[in-house]
């Protein structure tokens, strides 16, 4: 049973203090997930770990180090030996916004990319009882008065990008964090906030059940699992936003293991098994090789710095 294998592997990992790598991997590989078990990013890592373990022929362990908006686990990845045996499952907010917001123990540039894995498109939804039928109506209301909205957490990509949208379109919005995507949706359902802005896949059940209305998704095309929801573009706003999850390693990791990891991840992340599993969990598989991923990271940093400066949240 895999459970026991994982336990044994965890033991091995603890025992094998330093590893002198000739061939890669030279023992169990560990993927640090800087969030709680059960989050979307955790699902991504666990699925990939399974496929990677088969490819490597050695165990791949997912370790959750939650807290501090992803800062604790990210900092821990940087403290681990840079030998390629420890990878970080980076998310937009933890890798590119947190170091701007507060002391975090790391900089975005302390890591180098392996590959981007999946994207989670973001959508805007209101409760069924909400007076707003279209995005246009909601935007008009937020120009005339103040509306409130919820995202998973302050400083999250969802928060930063909606704040950007608001400042570009002259909206007045109050933000509250929902302690995760589902918590943010709860705040919209109870009528506490006017709308939620979280990962679109979170809406499926409630939208089908008629308790939520998804007014718009921030993607170039409509989403297959929410085909009734128009895009921001259709409503006349040029606005895209998504959360990405990808693998990175500390900058000091030697070339050998880094290249080996890039080659392996390129293969497994695009395998049929991984794609199928990701689609089952309503993630959008979006493999990006290291260079493209680095460009994306740089863009996120730049965007976050600009918006957080406008919001007065830079440390």
């Amino acid at each position: 049973m895999r459970f026991w294998k994982t336990l044994v592997a965890a033991g091995l990992l603890a025992a094998s203090g330093s590893v002198h790598a000739q061939e890669y991997p030279s023992g169990p590989v560990r993927i640090i997930v800087p969030f709680e078990a059960g989050d979307a990013i955790d699902g991504t890592a666990r699925l990939l770990a399974d496929v990677m373990a088969n490819e490597f022929g050695s165990p791949v362990i997912v370790q959750n180090i939650p807290g501090g908006g992803g800062a604790a686990g990210t900092a821990e990845a940087l403290r681990s030996p840079a030998d390629g045996q420890t990878l970080l499952m980076a998310s937009t907010g933890a890798l590119t916004a947190r170091p701007i917001l507060s002391t975090s123990g790391y900089q975005t540039s302390d890591f180098k990319p392996i590959a981007n894995l999946v994207d989670q498109p973001i959508g805007l939804a209101v409760a069924a009882s909400s007076p707003y039928q279209t995005l246009g109506e909601l935007v008009e209301a937020a120009k005339a008065g103040t509306l409130s909205y919820s995202t998973p957490a302050p400083g999250s990509t969802q928060h930063v990008s909606m704040a950007d949208f608001a400042s570009k379109n002259g909206l007045t919005l109050n933000h509250v964090g929902g302690q995760g995507g589902r918590g943010a949706i709860t705040k919209a359902l109870t009528g506490e906030v006017d709308f939620a802005f979280v990962g679109a896949s979170n809406y499926i059940g409630l939208a089908d059940g008629g308790q939520l209305r998804v007014l718009a998704v921030a993607t170039p095309e409509r989403l297959p699992f929410l085909s009734d929801a128009p895009t921001f573009k259709e409503a006349g706003f040029d606005f895209n936003a998504s959360v990405w999850f990808g693998l990175v390693v500390p900058q000091q990791t030697p070339e050998g293991p880094t290249e080996a990891l890039r080659a392996t991840v390129e293969k497994v992340a695009q395998s049929d098994k991984a794609t199928e599993l990701y689609e089952k969990l309503n993630f959008e598989p979006n493999y990006m090789a290291a260079d493209a991923f680095q460009t994306r990271i740089d863009e996120s940093v730049e965007q976050n710095r600009r918006i957080l400066t406008e919001l007065g949240l830079v440390k």
Binding site: P66, G67, G68, G69, A71, A72, A75, L101, S102, T103, S104, G105, A153, P154, G155, V176, G177, Q179, L313, K315
Partner: peptide
């Protein structure tokens, strides 16, 4: 202690980023 859940700022961490997690 840790990251303020509303504003996202650090509190009472005394510059020690291990305390960002807060006291679980």
């Amino acid at each position: 202690v840790g990251i303020d859940p509303v504003g996202g700022m650090e509190r009472l961490t005394f510059g020690n980023f291990s305390l960002l997690t807060g006291i679980a």
